[in-house]
């Protein structure tokens, strides 16, 4: 399609711009076939991202909380597509938390990017599930009364096989993380620290700039599970690391495990024809004549 770029209607200085640039570059640098890339998003400021990319990918801007469900249907019907989910922290960890957790159980080969800004930005800044108790960004009338969820620990326990944290203003670093996540075989999640200058005056660029550090800069940090027996230890280390928050905030890859089979592989195990004859790759009619044969299964019902 001829490109008519959409104007990105985010506030000036919004962290979403960093994610947009990093994601777009990652797709380009990986040399993906644009028409095979589908960005599925939720509802919120973050959810508008597929419309703003300047490369001809496809976008499915879904419902609040449901992006993972749409992505699941898309990917399993057509596993040849590269599916990326972008959603807000409210979207993925609040209203869509059930899907976020259950997606981990399936380990479908796709990537989930959380725009973690601590607020429900598009509804004018209410507390999101990642906002810490006692925090009072300027948009909250009272300090936040609930504790936060820890997206990294949640993803680890849910079964995500690539778990990382990125920072929206480190576009290059984030781009590399997104590339790794896309290349990863299995379900990847990146929790992206995304300042919202309009509503969140606590977790700002200034706040993060001096705190974030890459895990890879730590001597001995090796998040990759290479043998089944390493799983417990690496998972425990990642969990422990996920608790670090304060003067130093780790970003980078917390955990990666490609030994776990993907959902697609599990389907092939049960139904070998899925490898080639997956739903989007089969014709169901010719000139109006239905091509599926049900004689066998009707025979089971013969009396």
């Amino acid at each position: 399609m001829e490109l008519k770029p959409e104007w990105s209607d985010w506030c000036p200085g919004c962290g979403n711009f960093g994610i947009l640039n990093a994601e777009q570059k990652a797709i380009q640098e990986l040399g993906l076939d644009f028409k095979k890339v589908v960005i599925v998003s939720g509802i919120g400021c973050s959810g508008k991202i597929p419309h703003f990319l300047k490369i001809p990918i496809s976008g499915v801007h879904t419902l609040h909380g449901r992006a993972i469900a749409y992505a699941t249907g898309i990917k399993l019907s057509n596993p040849s597509l590269e599916v990326i989910v972008n959603g807000g922290d409210g979207d993925l960890l609040g209203i869509g938390a059930g899907h976020f957790v259950n997606a981990g159980r399936r380990n479908i080969d796709m990537t989930v990017i959380i725009h973690d800004n601590g607020v429900y930005a598009l509804t004018k800044g209410q507390a999101s599930p990642t906002l810490r108790r006692g925090d009072k960004p300027k948009s909250l009338p009272l300090p936040n009364i609930s504790d936060n969820v820890n997206p990294i620990a949640l993803a680890l326990s849910a079964g995500y096989t690539f778990v990382a944290r990125g920072y929206a203003y480190d576009v290059n670093g984030l781009k590399e993380l997104i590339k790794q996540a896309i290349r990863h075989k299995g379900l990847a999640v990146i929790d992206v620290l995304q300042p919202c200058p309009t509503y969140n005056d606590i977790y700002t660029k200034e706040f993060y700039d001096k705190r974030v550090y890459y895990l890879s800069s730590e001597k001995d940090w090796d998040p990759v599970v290479r043998k089944p027996e390493e799983e417990g230890e690496k998972m425990a280390k990642a969990m422990l690391k996920s608790l670090e928050w304060g003067d130093r905030i780790p970003i980078g890859v917390f955990y990666q495990n490609e030994l776990v089979s993907t959902y697609e592989e599990r389907i092939v195990q049960q139904a070998p024809s899925y490898k080639d004859a997956y739903p989007a790759n089969v014709e169901i009619e010719k000139d109006g004549k239905l091509l599926t044969l049900v004689d066998d299964i009707l025979k089971e019902k013969k009396v």
């Binding site: 599925v40 499915v60 879904t62 419902l63 909380g65 449901r66 993972i68 469900a69 749409y70 992505a71 699941t72 249907g73 898309i74 399993l76 019907s77 057509n78 597509l81 059930g98 899907h99 957790v101 259950n102 389907i267 139904a271 070998p272 024809s273 899925y274 004859a277 997956y278 739903p279 989007a280 089969v282 599926t292």
Partner: peptide, 27 residues
């Protein structure tokens, strides 16, 4: 032989939206 993908979803919110997503791929 071909495969019909049948997914037991985590809830009906997921079930309907998975199916809608699938329909966009032409199945």
């Amino acid at each position: 032989k071909k495969t019909v993908v049948v997914v037991q979803a985590e809830d009906e919110l997921s079930a309907i939206n998975m199916a809608i997503g699938a329909s966009l791929t032409g199945v």
